[in-house]
């Protein structure tokens, strides 16, 4: 192969004598960045700037997919639209009926709360955000959404979709935010079995269709089909949203804990639109002090406050 030379260089390996030194300096800078960044918060400004710089590229990557979706939705056949319309109308009627019932229950609930002298739950505010089609890392369950600090999004904010809890915001830029899904191995959410109020923690497995409940004792009252709601402990997620449905309960006599799996209620692997939720955690209500972790703590810290396998 021909000897390669670059303009201005006298020999093929310029500045070779300082190569090792430069490598060590840059390596140390990288390690310093990692240490500072891993301790959270210190690099918020830099992270926000980087997220802002990355956003146009992410939109660029997303645009072919968005274009294709636009095309297919524009050229949907009349039959398909009619069929969809009919289905949505039926769904709306069902929802209306349910809503009527719910309103009555809400009124009753409010009255009871007032009788108990309890603080009424703060009204939730939600905002729609689109999920950008950007692959981050096949082994991490994270997505980018197209709303950021400009829209008031903040770190550790809960994210839901139409069917259940989706995840929480881990990083925010001005126009975009990174959301960690329930199924990420680094994520855990305090949940409650709706049937009997049993409290535990659902941990991500890396598989978008499976959560694991590793802290339930073998004799815990849980069975396949049980619905898991967010318990509101930990102070990050609002209480009462569907999280998952138990799919498998295995009680191995040789183990102190049951092996329990659950399927997430939200469409973690195929949601196009999600809702960012604002709510004020009802700190004055029943939640024990130890469990009401301040916002901004990582899920691991938040869950550490609750004893594993806590039962009512």
């Amino acid at each position: 192969m021909a000897v390669l030379r670059e303009p201005g260089s006298r020999y093929a390996a310029p500045r070779a004598h300082t190569l090792g030194l430069r490598a060590i300096v840059l390596g140390l800078v990288a390690i310093g960045l990692m240490v500072v960044d891993h301790r959270e918060q210190h690099l918020r400004v830099l992270r926000e700037g980087l997220a802002a710089a990355a956003y146009p590229f992410q939109v660029l990557v997303h645009s072919p997919v968005a274009g294709w979706e636009w095309l297919t939705s524009n050229f949907a056949t009349r039959d398909a639209l009619l069929e969809q319309n009919a289905r949505l109308k039926a769904e709306q009627q069902r929802s209306d009926l349910r809503l009527l019932r719910l309103e009555a229950i809400e009124q009753e609930n409010l009255r009871l709360r007032r009788m108990l002298n309890a603080v009424p739950p703060a009204a939730d505010r939600v905002m729609l955000a689109r999920v950008l089609r950007v692959d981050l890392d096949p082994f991490r369950q994270r997505v980018i959404v197209d709303q950021g600090t400009r829209a008031g999004v903040s770190k550790a904010q809960p994210v839901i979709d139409a069917t259940g809890v989706f995840g929480q915001v881990t990083n925010v830029g001005p126009y975009s935010a990174e959301v960690i899904l329930l199924s990420d191995t680094a994520h855990a959410i305090p949940v409650q079995v709706s049937r009997n109020g049993l409290r535990t923690i659902a941990v991500g497995t890396g598989d978008p269709l499976r959560l694991s409940l590793p802290y339930l004792p073998r004799n815990a009252d849980v069975k396949p089909g049980d619905e898991l709601l967010s318990s509101g402990l930990g102070g990050i997620f609002p209480a009462g949203y569907p999280v998952a449905r138990v799919t498998k309960v295995e009680r191995d006599p040789s183990r102190p804990l049951a092996i329990v799996d659950a399927a997430p209620a939200a469409a973690l692997d195929r949601a196009n639109e999600v809702l960012l939720v604002w709510y004020s955690p009802p700190a004055a209500l029943g939640a024990p002090k130890a469990a009401a972790a301040p916002s901004g703590t990582t899920p691991a810290q938040a869950t550490a406050a609750i004893p594993p396998g806590a039962s009512p």
Partner: peptide, 15 residues
Amino acid sequence: AFRGVVLGQHALAFV
């Protein structure tokens, strides 16, 4: 920045 991992991880490996 793109992958949203701890800053400096890929930078170190690249260097």
